[in-house]
Amino acid sequence: MAAAAVPQDIARRAVEWMVELQSPPVPDELLREWQQWLTSHPDHQRAWQRIEAVNDRLRGLGAGQQHPAPALTAALLAPRGSRGRRQAVKALSLAIFTGTLAWTAEEHLPWRAWSADERTGPGQRRRVALADGTRVALNTASAFDVAIDGAARRLRLHAGELLITTAPDTAGRPLLVHTAQGVLETLAASSARFAVRLYPHATQVSVFDGEVALRPASLAASSVLQAGQQALFGAAAVMPTLAADEDSVAWIDGFLIAKAMRLDAFVAELERYSDIALGCAPAVAGLRVSGSFRLDDIGRVLETLAATLTLDIETTTRFFGHWRSGIRLAPRP
C-alpha cells in the first residue's frame, strides 16, 4: 500500500515520534514507548518506513552535505508541547507524506556528484592528472566530470572545491570549468593555477598564477581575474574583487588555517571534513580562532579548541531510523 494511504493522525504521530527521538536526552522509557507504538499496528510500521525512506533518500542525495528541512529544524528548536512544535510537526508530516520534502531535496542537492567522473567523500582529498596534463586536486566531498575533445577541455564541477593547475595546450584548446552559476576559462597559450569552490548559490574563484576569465550564466560579458585576485559570483552578478589567500588552499597539504576566525565559522568549515555533525553553542560562537590545524585528526582539533578557549566538548545522539552522533563545543559550567 502506498505511503500516502497512511491515516493522517498516524502520519502525524510518526513525525512526532521522529522529532522526540531527535531531541536529546532520549530516556530509555521513551524509546520503549516508541517501540511499543511501532509494533502495535501495521499502519504505524508503514508510517515509520516512509520516514526512514525519506531520510535515506536525503542522505543519498546529499553527497556528504547536510540540508535539514526547515520544518524539522523548527520542530527541534521549539519546546516540547509548545504550539510552535505542533505547527512544525504538522508541516513536516505534510512534507514527508506528500513527497514534498523529497522533491525539494532532489531539486537542490548535488545528486549528480554520485555518478561524476572524479569524486571524494567527506574527509577525503585526491589529486588526479587529466589526459591533457592538467592537474586537479579535489578537496573533501567534491565531484566533477571531464570532457576533452579537439575543440576544448571541459570540467563540470558538481560539488565541493578544486585546485586546478594548467599548462599551455599544444592543441590550442581553452580550459573551461562549468558550475551552476557560469563558466571559467583559461587561455590555451598560458598556464594558470586557481581554486574553484561551490557554495549553495554562488561560485568562488581564487587565482594564484596566470589569469582566469569568468562569465556568469545570465551575462554576456566576462570578467578577468589576475594572479592574486579572488571573486565570488552568482548566475547574474560578480561580487567585488578581493585579494586571494594562499592559506585558503592549505587543505592540499592537509591543513586548515584560521586567522581570527569566528568559532562558529571555523567549526562549520571543519565540519566539511567530518562524517559527523559539528557545532558550537550560540554563547561561544563569537570567540576567535587562529592557528594551523591538521585535518586528519578532527578529534584532536576539537580538543585543542576546547583547551585553548576553555570549552566543554558535548556529544549528542539522535535517533532517525538509526542512531546518529554529533559533537558540540559549549561553555564550561
Rank of each mutant, 00 (worst) to 15 (best):
M1S: 02
P7D: 06
I10M: 05
W17L: 00
E20W: 12
V26T: 10
R32S: 10
R32F: 04
E33L: 13
Q35E: 15
W37D: 00
D43T: 04
W48Q: 09
Q49C: 00
R50N: 13
E52C: 15
N55Y: 11
R59Y: 06
G62D: 02
Q65G: 09
Q66A: 13
P68I: 08
A69S: 15
A71T: 11
L72F: 13
T73E: 13
T73N: 08
A74G: 05
L76R: 09
G81K: 12
G81H: 13
G81S: 12
S82E: 06
S82Y: 06
R85Y: 02
R86M: 04
Q87S: 11
A88N: 02
S93I: 05
I96A: 09
A102I: 11
W103N: 10
A105Q: 03
E106Q: 14
E106V: 04
E107H: 15
H108I: 14
W111P: 00
R112H: 11
S115T: 15
T120S: 04
G123I: 02
G123F: 02
R127L: 08
A131L: 12
A131C: 02
F144Q: 06
D145A: 12
A152Q: 15
R156E: 13
R156K: 14
T165F: 01
A167C: 05
T170N: 11
G172D: 03
G172M: 03
G172C: 04
V177Y: 02
L187S: 14
L198H: 02
Y199L: 15
T203M: 08
V205S: 01
S206G: 12
V207G: 04
D209P: 01
G210K: 06
V212Q: 03
A213C: 05
A217T: 08
S218T: 09
A220E: 13
A221K: 13
S223F: 09
L225N: 05
Q226V: 07
A227E: 03
A227N: 05
G228D: 04
Q229W: 06
Q230S: 13
A236P: 01
A237E: 15
A244T: 03
D245V: 06
E246F: 04
D247N: 15
I257L: 12
M261K: 14
F266V: 03
A268W: 00
A277K: 14
P282R: 10
P282N: 07
A283D: 12
A283K: 10
A285F: 06
G286A: 12
S290G: 07
G299A: 07
G299M: 04
R300F: 09
V301K: 05
L302C: 08
E303T: 14
A307E: 13
L311G: 01
I313S: 10
E314N: 07
R318H: 06
F319M: 09
W323D: 04
S325T: 15
S325E: 14
G326P: 09
L329S: 01
A330M: 10
P331A: 06
P331G: 07
